[in-house]
Computed example of a mutant assay.
Amino acid sequence: MPRVDYVSQEDLDDEYADLIVSSLQPGKRINVYSAIGNNPEVLAGFRAFLGSLWDHSGLSDRQREIVILTAASEFGSAYEWHQHVNVGTDAGLTPEEIAAIGRDDRTGFPIDEQALIAYTRAVVRGRVTDALHEAVESELGAEATIGAASTAAGYAALGQVIDALGVEIEDGDEFAGWDPR
């Protein structure tokens, strides 16, 4: 059960009203944004921050979704996982790869993506070593490594907010499952 009310567009000033709507599914109100919308300035900040990660991380769409799904898996955020299963598929991940991320099975991924998954889990745990950072940076470069660290930490923070506010999967949606095959 949500711990806060979900606000509607009508509850918000015009400058914030569209921030509770999905950028990927136009017209669809998203519960996490509707919950955070109880503090519109924080919502605007979250959306700007997550948008910068989305658009300017230096990661490919596939890499970005590997990071987000890995962070959601590591944190145990069913809501965030559910939101990104289809996005990950659209970014080129197979259902088998998504399921493997959920069980932390890296064997089917190329070396650079194995390193990215390990790095993301380490960021979420707060356990990045110099050797792991150097391995990822040698594969991805400094810009994308910073983007990966920031995306992992940003989505872990979002997962913590989701947990704190008790955000539920949207009405009418059924959880995609940790193994979406």
Rank of each mutant, 00 (worst) to 15 (best):
D173V: 04
D105I: 11
G76R: 13
T70V: 06
I162W: 00
I101E: 13
D90T: 14
D112S: 05
I66Q: 02
I101P: 03
R125M: 01
G159I: 02
W81Y: 15
Q83S: 10
D112M: 04
S150N: 10
G141Y: 05
G27A: 06
A100K: 08
I30T: 12
D105E: 14
L59V: 07
G27K: 00
G58E: 04
S34T: 03
D173E: 13
D90Y: 05
H82Q: 12
E65T: 08
I111T: 04
E134Q: 14
P2L: 04
V21W: 02
R3Y: 12
D130C: 08
F109H: 01
Y16E: 11
E134R: 14
G147R: 13
N31T: 08
S23L: 13
I66R: 00
A17E: 11
L53P: 02
E143D: 14
A71K: 04
L50I: 01
W178C: 12
T70F: 02
H56D: 12
E139A: 14
V124C: 09
R29Y: 03
S57T: 00
V87E: 15
L19P: 03
E174Q: 14
I68F: 03
D163T: 10
Q160K: 14
H84L: 03
E174D: 15
F109E: 01
E96H: 02
T70I: 09
D55H: 15
L165V: 05
Y16L: 00
A156Q: 11
F175P: 07
A71Q: 14
Q114P: 06
D11P: 08
N39G: 10
H133T: 05
P40W: 15
R47Y: 06
T94E: 13
A99S: 07
T70M: 06
L19Y: 04
N39R: 15
T107H: 09
G166K: 01
T120A: 00
E143M: 10
V87S: 13
A131E: 15
F175R: 05
H84G: 04
H133K: 11
I117Y: 04
F109V: 01
T89V: 06
P180Q: 11
T120Y: 07
R121H: 01
A72C: 09
G172C: 13
A156I: 01
I146A: 13
A142E: 09
E168Y: 11
D171K: 08
R62V: 05
G147K: 02
A148R: 10
F75E: 11
M1L: 06
D171T: 09
V167C: 04
E15G: 00
G51D: 07
L53Y: 09
F75R: 11
I169T: 08
P2F: 08
S57L: 10
I30E: 12
S8D: 02
A149V: 12
V87L: 14
G172Q: 12
E65I: 01
F46H: 03
E137Y: 03
R106N: 01
T89Q: 13
I101Q: 12
P40S: 15
A91E: 06
L158W: 06
P180R: 00
Y155E: 02
V167T: 11
A44H: 12
A156F: 09
D179E: 15
H133V: 04
N39K: 15
L140Y: 14
L165K: 04
E174K: 07
P180Y: 02
G88K: 01
Y33E: 09
Q160L: 15
E10M: 06
G154H: 03
L24H: 13
N39M: 02
P26G: 08
E41N: 15
D14G: 11
